[in-house]
């Protein structure tokens, strides 16, 4: 475990490297001097509080936003310095599961999953249908081909989006809050799916999550984004960590936090009622 993360890879060059990356949106700082590496073929989870920059880290990997400074390397290429055409080449290695699924709502599930194949793969209609059905079966959604995204439950949307994210056989899968908004059983299914995809296809998976329990079960490496820096390590090491910030994040004292919030609310000045109410 280290304060300046450097996840070492046993299986060659790490496919994702953050090298001294600082990020801000206008005047709002997101994180400063963030460095970490995600080794190939493992599941890495990025944890952190709201607004800590977890989703932004994924968007940096996909080249959807640009860092203020530093390098974001995907398979050795700095995505922040690539043009659109070169980004297309890098994005072919990436699949992304967005928080809300981001399915195209005018298309059926089948058409959504087939979409990247139709755009980029030179396959016949029959081959595309086979690949789509394989992906849908892999995520346990074989009977939803004809449904529109609006007709799906939250868990089904995530699974359909996951099927679309893996249909091109990317080497890296990015998942933004895959468990958010799901009931515990659906969340467990998605967790199992990600583990299965990692095992079956050998994909490197980067998950952004709030869910500490699932993170500790599925992650090989964990990066915690804290207000004053980042901490990285294996789940077991982090759980045994003597770092008060890590312990405070992984085992928060909820009752103390509630007492603190209640005291803050009680201490807040109450304006005199101005109207009839």
């Amino acid at each position: 475990m280290s304060d300046q993360p450097s996840i070492s890879s046993a299986a060659g060059a790490p496919p994702i490297v953050f090298d001294d990356v600082s990020m801000a949106f206008g005047a709002r700082r997101v994180f400063d001097h963030l460095s970490f590496r995600v080794p190939a073929g493992l599941i890495a989870v990025i944890l952190g509080g709201s607004g800590s920059g977890k989703s932004t880290a994924l968007r940096l990997i996909g080249g959807l936003v640009q860092p203020v400074s530093g390098r974001v390397l995907v398979d050795g290429e700095d995505v922040a310095r690539l043009g659109e055409r070169q980004l297309t080449r890098v994005r072919a290695k990436l699949g992304m599961l967005f928080q809300g699924g981001a399915l195209l709502d005018a298309m059926t599930v089948f058409e959504n999953v087939a979409f990247p194949l139709r755009e980029h793969a030179r396959l016949s209609a029959a081959e595309i249908a086979t690949r789509v059905r394989e992906s849908l079966a892999a995520v346990g959604l074989p009977d939803a081909e004809a449904l529109l995204p609006g007709q799906l439950s939250g868990g089904m949307v995530k699974r359909a989006a996951l099927a679309r994210a893996i249909v091109m056989r990317p080497t890296i899968l990015l998942c933004d809050e895959p468990f958010s908004g799901l009931d515990p059983i659906s969340a467990c299914r998605i967790e199992a799916l990600l583990g299965g995809i990692n095992a079956r296809f050998g994909m490197t998976i980067v998950v952004v999550s709030h869910d500490i329990a699932s993170t500790m079960r599925m992650a090989a490496r964990v990066l915690i984004l804290l207000p004053d820096g980042a901490v990285e390590g294996a789940p077991a090491d982090l759980q045994r960590s003597g770092d008060a910030r890590v312990a405070g994040f992984l085992q928060p004292d909820v009752e103390a936090a509630l007492r603190q919030e209640a005291a803050a609310v009680a201490a807040a000045p109450v304006e005199a009622a101005a109207g009839p109410w």
């Binding site: 996909g62 959807l64 994005r91 967005f98 980029h120 679309r164 091109m168």
Partner: peptide
Amino acid sequence: VTEQLDGLRMMSVD
């Protein structure tokens, strides 16, 4: 708002 445009970008579709 629903990230569909970003989804297209990530699928290398402008």
